[in-house]
Design a binder for these strands. Structure first.
Lengths: 336, 336
DNA sequence: AAGCGGCATTTTATCGATAATATAACGGCG
DNA sequence: CGCCGTTATATTATCGATAAAATGCCGCTT
């Protein structure tokens, strides 16, 4: 592969290896004629630095990893927002995935893997506070996601509860009284969906209405297919409902399918709102009302914290909750 | 970071560094008592191997890169299919992105970056045959995508023309005569959209119908937003149409939005078919007829070719065209 | 009892770069 | 004219592992 070594360039240019290194890294000044000879040799031989050797010696990779549960949908979109921010600093971004399993997440955080990167952004889904606490590394890390995390980690998360409250309150305001919390759960092991359930509950309480636990409908996975199946069951069960708060837009899309096949009209018979405001939300008729998770803001905040850590900041970690806002579209009655 | 070195473990266990290495890599046999002492020392010190040093010495990273134009939608989904196949072999998969620019793609193929990986899967979008021909490396590489590539590279691509033909013929068969080719182009610089245009044309010819170039409607980017805008223009222009073949499902989703806002009913007034069969396609009412690009098959074929190359195969490269099939749903009249 | 083969372990050399330190060349100044 | 501080380049040591060769030890053969 990198058949040409720095030593070959040095020989070709009639200088020492260090001079070549100095020319390429602009560390120590090199006289112009020498410099030109070195550059010519580099060109002639097609030399490219061995990044692995540099890494071993210099301890730097100029690479940041974004470790996600899976590559598609939400995380792919966020990754596309993060990439330019990292590249603007002259670093590379690579994605790794964990399959959302705690073992894989721990493996990704193993000292061994971390060595490859100057910094790591980790979307935590499976690990709990204790497991995270066991991660001992001085590597710059910023955690993303809804789990509870140890104080010493920088952490960026969404205002889940507030977002769910906003969406639910909006549907209550426009006449719904029996709103399913699709994909929500009472299981506090999954913070995202239980936080959003709490927001859904609060909207009811705030409106002076009762909360009915039967309206919390979990899904087996956060996919459209599982959501569609879960909602089909509800429809078949005769539990009456006139609104659906879906825990994510992907789940909401499953709901759209189940509602359509049962002849339930959106938003006339059933109002529907999702969470994340992924691209798709504006295009699925009649437009999906969704809580904008502010990907861009999350990306900027997280990268900012990571940058600070990589620059050597040693102050206390920050725990940022980025604000959300409701984007109203045709799937609720306030929409166009 | 990796503060604990193999030498520390060796000292703790009272053996040489090589013995530790042999225990961990199971290269040479080690007596059980010694082996146990080493393992105990590893545990006690929390040692983890320095992968960078191993890479430098052993020339192996056990990591494969999938280099994509962008992280979201199609590529994210394919990546999720590829990951388990790579992991099944005990390797890691990482994603890098190129922003679809030729410079970035070349940079990704630079000798320097390639060193990090044992093999590379590259989705080619921007590079032409000549540029690819300039890539000189013996690193295992498999190219994915619709560009024309030099013979020496393994290459997997979809049956674009056939897929477009299938979708268009299906709509003709069910009564459409004026079918837009949304997102298609006459510009042969973009093979994917021109190949699909050719398939669209062939369906017309096969049916004994004339091809009208006005029905080829390009989009500025392959996004739903651009597609919606392009279709709005067509609707406003009074060019009559009764079918839309969208060059991708994402483009089709934009079409769904434009049709819905103009009150055009799918499939009664306008039939619609997309390409890729992404997850979303089954859930957007009334279900999007789409050409199944057979992600799974593409992933398996590509990984198979890569595996063979990484195992040392030196025979001629293969150029595989994976078959496609039409998945009929409610957006065309043959559907449920 | 000397010699030899096999196994467990250690020694040595190396992967390809960079940080720190050393040396050579040169010009200015008293 | 010789001493000294700069500047340019070269040497040396090192990052942390692994491949290959060397050593030491044991029992077994003859």
């Amino acid at each position: 592969m990198a058949r040409v070594r720095m030593a070959d360039v040095a020989r070709e240019a009639g200088v020492s290896v260090m001079t070549v290194s100095n020319v390429l890294n602009e560390r120590l000044p090199v006289n112009e004629p020498t410099r030109a000879r070195v550059m010519a040799a580099v060109e002639a031989l097609g030399y490219e630095v061995n990044l692995t050797a540099r890494h071993l010696r210099a301890g730097r990779t100029d690479t940041v990893a974004f470790i996600v549960p899976s590559f598609h949908d939400y995380f792919g979109e966020v990754a596309d927002k993060i990439a330019p921010l990292i590249e603007a600093e002259g670093r590379h971004l690579v994605l790794e995935r964990t399959s959302a399993s705690p073992e894989h997440e721990m493996a990704a955080l193993s000292v061994a893997r971390l060595q490859f990167y100057d910094g790591v952004l980790l979307s935590v889904v499976g690990l709990d506070r204790d497991q995270l606490d066991r991660v001992r590394t001085s590597k710059p890390i910023v955690l993303l996601g809804e789990r509870d995390v140890p104080d010493r980690f920088n952490h960026v998360r969404l205002a889940n509860e507030e977002g769910a409250r906003l969406a639910t309150a909006h549907m209550i305001e426009h006449g719904s009284r029996r709103i399913l919390a699709l994909g929500c759960t009472f299981d506090t092991a999954h913070m995202m969906s239980s936080d959003r359930r709490i927001g859904w509950e609060r909207a009811f309480r705030d409106a002076g209405l009762d909360v009915d636990a039967r309206y919390v409908v979990p899904v087996s996975t956060y996919t459209s297919a599982a959501a569609r199946d879960a909602l089909r069951h509800v429809i078949a069960s005769d539990l009456p409902f006139d609104g659906v708060f879906a825990v994510t837009d992907v789940v909401a899309l499953g709901a759209v399918a189940a509602l359509a096949e049962s002849g339930l009209r959106v938003p006339v018979d059933v109002q529907l709102a999702g969470f994340d405001n992924i691209d798709m939300a504006s295009f699925v008729p009649p437009g999906l009302t969704s809580v904008d998770a502010n990907h861009e803001g999350v990306a900027e905040t997280a990268v900012g914290l990571l940058r600070r850590q990589m620059a050597g900041w040693t102050g206390p970690a920050e725990h940022v909750v980025t604000p959300v806002r409701l984007v109203v579209r045709g799937s609720t009655r306030g929409g166009a």
